[in-house]
Design a protein around this nucleic acid. Sequence first.
DNA 1: GGACGGTGAAACTTCAGGTTGCCTC
DNA 2: GAAGTTTCACCGTCC
Length: 559
Amino acid sequence: MNKPKLMESNKILRTTKENFIDLTLNTIYKGKQVLIFNNSKNSSEATAEKVAIANKRVENKIELEQLAQKILKSLQTPTKQCRRLAKCIQKGTAFHHSGLTGKQRTLVETNFKSGLIKVISSTPTLAAGLNLPAYKVIIKDYKRFSARGMADIPVLEFHQMAGRAGRPGKETIGRAVVLVKSEEEQDRVIKKYIFGKSEEIFSKLAVEPTLKMYLLSLISMDMINSKNEIKDFFKNTLYAKQYQDLEGLYFNVFKILQTLKGYGFIDQQDDYYRATRLGKRVSELYLNPDTANYFLENLDDLEQIFSKEIYNEYDTYKLIHFVVNAIEMRPLFRLQRSEEDIYMAKVSDLGDDMVTKYDPFEMDYRELMQTFKTSDILQDWITEKSEDDICEMYKTTPGELNYKLSNLDWLLYSLEEFAHLKKMHFFKNVIKKTRIRFKNGVKEDIISLVSIKGIGRVRARKLYSANIRSYSDIKKVSYRKLEEIIGRSVAHKLKQEIGNEYTENDTVVYQNSKPTQIKVREVSHEEVDELVATHIKYIEEEKEVIKSAEKNNSLLNYF
DNA sequence: GGACGGTGAAACTTCAGGTTGCCTC
DNA sequence: GAAGTTTCACCGTCC
């Protein structure tokens, strides 16, 4: 067997061929933790995996196994990424990037803080907002892909990462290591990142969408209303100090005010500006005014699509594609080289049929193809494709999918609000239903089933396939049959949730009553559904009464 | 001789991130 | 620029 060699410079025990693995192992074998920064998601996963394989001294195996199981169970069906993370965690190593779901990220972060996980290999996400210090930080890549090839990361970002070394209050020192390949590179890195100056920070106020959003929100909160107040406010901004071009800034501001007026979001009386009711709502929703205007301008066309008695999945696709075109959905899912032909064909087949038509001055062709890819992914989600299949097919991750879904829900909610303001009640309900579909990832036929506590997309579909299609069906079905479909414990919980418990003979024992066996009366589906509908209607009416009582400050009188 | 599987070199492809609404449990 | 993935040619084995 080969004797392990020592690196001359810093006495690191060498057991592998890669520096970062030896550095990491040496640190964790001393009982300390390591953060490794990579420049891509793939690379952060591969790095974690390499360290995990090389780690021969794993502590707290039982706790780590439990954590790995939690990671696997954090999605309805574990994806390839979940399985990879769980495997690393069994060895006390984890990766962390935007592709993980919120739940998985929290699990990794809290268990690193508690000391169970010894190593996190991450993209720069971790350096930005989180307070996760470690004894040693290894900056594996200080270059990142950009439009002009590989480029050095900014000095500020380098400091962000290196600054994670050392745990204030717990240790007196920390170490930050950057990997280089030659002495020349080492000199350059020291000069640039250790002794060099950080980049200057520039105001982004000149960027029109940002300015538009802030102007509307400042006016809507009545912080600035008159022309003089507006000028005074912007005179004191970082932008004004940096560029000294006040006249140019005022010109932009008043041009935007005209646009907002044109959108109907603000009113002007002489030199005084006020937000309209609509403008206030747009600001409250944190919507970009351009997006809000885009929604409002197309509301009638959208309503028209759903005005028929029966609408289909293609109509829903048009709605998704419409929302995907909002600026808030950017960046869209990236297009793979191998997908180009597919989406070129899709654009030519469906492009003219969508509500948002292609405008080459507004969007490049690739982006247009990406709007279709993003819509496809989102539609696959509500037609019950598994997360694993979606991630595999479109080369994406559960975290990115979740992020897009939450953005979409926010935009759909805003659209629903506008439909409400315009009294488009049927269309409002269509959006509401679509939101439930996105929340649960289901087709329309099982919406009522997923609204029951403890029933997700998988169980709902199982129930539906077994002809159990409503709340009343669940009430009627025998305990034994329910158990066969969704398992013993869920079936039990469900029966409890409903409020009565069926015996195996299909007799019912009412809660809060003597445990006598009472024969169930034969009731038709229609009869029970009617009862449930009456009950729901009653609750809705109650809510309305409470709402109006709240509005009139007469809640106490009501009760 | 053809089908099949394994191997390795060459060619091709891809590359970070994450504010904001509202509701309900 | 580098790492990962796919493609393809080549070779050996088996039927």
